[in-house]
């Protein structure tokens, strides 16, 4: 399962709810206003992530918000092409709206 979160955890509970339901082997992609989570300052919000959850961030959204190149360690940056690859690699997709 590819989980997609698009809101900052200080605005919505989408990330918290996603992490509570994600499992090992799943992937999480942070897009739009969720990319703040992918930085050193925001990463604490991922503390509840299950072991074995791969975390990605959409780099165009980081760049747009002045965070280009600031993805925290352990979080992989992908562009839209990488987003598509994640969708193809995981058997299904869940957007946490």
């Amino acid at each position: 399962m590819l989980h997609i979160v698009n809101k900052s955890p200080t605005e919505r509970n989408a990330l918290a709810s996603c992490l509570a339901h994600a499992k090992a082997g799943h992937a999480l992609l942070l897009i739009e206003d969720a990319v703040y989570v992918a930085t050193a300052g925001g990463k604490a919000a991922l503390a509840a992530a299950p072991a074995g959850l791969a975390v990605y961030v959409l780099s165009p959204d980081l760049q747009a918000r002045g965070l280009g190149g600031k993805a925290a360690e352990g979080i992989k940056e992908v562009d839209y092409k990488g987003f598509v690859e994640l969708v193809a690699a995981q058997p299904r997709v869940q957007s946490w709206l």
């Binding site: 739009e32 839209y80 092409k81 193809a88």
Partner: peptide, 26 residues
């Protein structure tokens, strides 16, 4: 796509995603 244009980023992200998917041969 569940949101209108301009108000939210979702229409932009969706379009960029579609474009990349087509370019990747999907």
């Amino acid at each position: 796509v569940n949101e209108g244009p301009y108000q939210h980023q979702s229409a932009d992200t969706a379009w960029n995603f579609c474009k990349a998917a087509i370019e990747a041969g999907h």
